[in-house]
């Protein structure tokens, strides 16, 4: 009935994930995981660093986002560790996630070029 993959339990096909534009928090989460698997707090801290404090992920938002990115096949579980008696789950970027992030970077670069080109035009 609806375009909701959660209803059918299916992940998006790879080609679709890489084509769809990412929200800003999703793009930063994928970027945070680009070089190493991280757990929840690690992702939050890395996103804050990468965005120069512009994106502050709340914990509920982060885990909702991780569920969505996992369902879309962009992120997958890596390993679990115990820390102070509590489980820490590490998440890593999948190949589809890397392609989606690359596509998002290309899209943002194209937008930035278009905006700079407009700025170079002097009013008559």
């Amino acid at each position: 009935m609806f375009h909701n993959h959660a209803l059918s339990g299916k992940a998006w096909p790879d080609s679709l994930s890489s084509m769809a534009s990412l929200t800003e928090p999703a793009a930063f989460v994928l970027a945070a995981l680009a070089d190493q698997p991280l757990h929840g707090w690690g992702i939050t801290a890395e996103v804050e660093l990468l965005s120069a404090g512009q994106v502050a992920l709340r914990v509920g938002t982060l885990y909702g986002l991780l569920d969505r990115l996992t369902a879309e096949g962009l992120v997958e579980p890596d390993r679990e560790e115990l820390h102070a008696g509590r489980t820490r789950r590490y998440h890593r970027l999948t190949d589809a996630g890397r392609r989606a992030l690359e596509a998002e970077a290309v899209r943002q670069e194209a937008n930035a070029r278009a905006l700079r080109a407009r700025l170079r035009v002097r009013p008559a």
Binding site: M1, F2, N4, H5, A6, L7, G9, R58, V59, G60, T61, Y63, G64, D67, R68, T70, A71, E72
Partner: peptide
């Protein structure tokens, strides 16, 4: 803010958001 954030996530999960149960998906639909 933490409370509102968790309640927001709880609502999305009860309405079939990613990571929710089959019953929640049906409720959301």
């Amino acid at each position: 803010a933490d409370r509102l954030d968790v309640w927001g996530l709880a609502l999305r999960l009860r309405l079939g958001g990613p990571g929710s149960s089959a019953r929640a998906s049906l409720t959301g639909a």
